[in-house]
Nucleic acid binder design. Sequence first.
DNA 1: TATAACATGTAACAAGTTACATGATTTC
DNA 2: GAAATCATGTAACTTGTTACATGTTATA
Lengths: 169, 169
Amino acid sequence: MDRELLLLGLLRREDMHGYQLHEFINQNLSSCVDLKKPTAYFLLDKMAEAGWILEVEEQQAGNRPARHVYHLTPEGEAVFQRLLRENLSTYHSPRFPSDIGLAFLDALKPSEAITLLNRRRDSIAAELANAMAVPAHPGSSQLVIEHLVRHLRTEIDWLDEVIARLGIQ
Amino acid sequence: MDRELLLLGLLRREDMHGYQLHEFINQNLSSCVDLKKPTAYFLLDKMAEAGWILEVEEQQAGNRPARHVYHLTPEGEAVFQRLLRENLSTYHSPRFPSDIGLAFLDALKPSEAITLLNRRRDSIAAELANAMAVPAHPGSSQLVIEHLVRHLRTEIDWLDEVIARLGIQ
DNA sequence: TATAACATGTAACAAGTTACATGATTTC
DNA sequence: GAAATCATGTAACTTGTTACATGTTATA
């Protein structure tokens, strides 16, 4: 229900339409959430049907398809409060598919392993530069970026250590 | 293709049957990979059809269903080598669904936020204790555990900082 | 005038999970 | 004799993605 929490939280701040929500998430939270357009529209439909949000107006600009602007209902606010507490009080560590390669590192000779891991290091560094380039946002949504930056720094430190160990052998 | 890489890598060390592979992954790599039994069987079928692995024997113990023991083919070895290099040379940072809650932290009064985040902290600490309890394994598969431990430590440090900031306000 | 951005959606597909089905053997 | 483990698998379901469809308006 994390995507629902996200959409409810954004609609709680301000009434928005689907395109707008998707764009905002893509631009400001792409580093931590990946929500495709069809998924966004689907979830909005579902939440509207559930009575968590309400279509408050159909903005028509010229002959374009009408914007469906949604507003949080009291039920939606209650769900938001519940989901937020649920989310904050638990933690499930993510899977690290990249670790599978590490498990078979001894299948390669150290020199090649070092070359490959240095390429991975560059890849992380690029993501880090990307994350740090995101313009600062007011309020606690800034925490999301800060967390990603810290995570990526840890990944680089860890990789450096693995690479160093390979060099010693 | 990370799950394929994993199965190929394990079969590269030793011939095994599906049940055995699933059990090994569940016991030793549960912290970083979650592979259900039906998925394991499905992937083995698929890889056998692709010629990456070969069913080398049907071990029959009493009247039990026969064990389908698989062996890596030369094609499988080539795929393994390719997938391993692909995996090691890239990095895709995982999504952190828990960050969505952080983005809306300002919807709660600090005292309650602190209570909830402390609960999350306990949850991470439990996972950490769990990871550290995994018996040491020879070779580079130990890296997987080490990485998880380091990640979870970072998560705790980060949470402590967020909690501290909330306390100051 | 071609391309990108705006705005919505449908339909087919992909990946993986859950629940179910079967039946033998070992352990308490 | 009940419960856990061994060993395989099928079928339905869930979740989300990709590709497609439609047409408008702004921009290069």
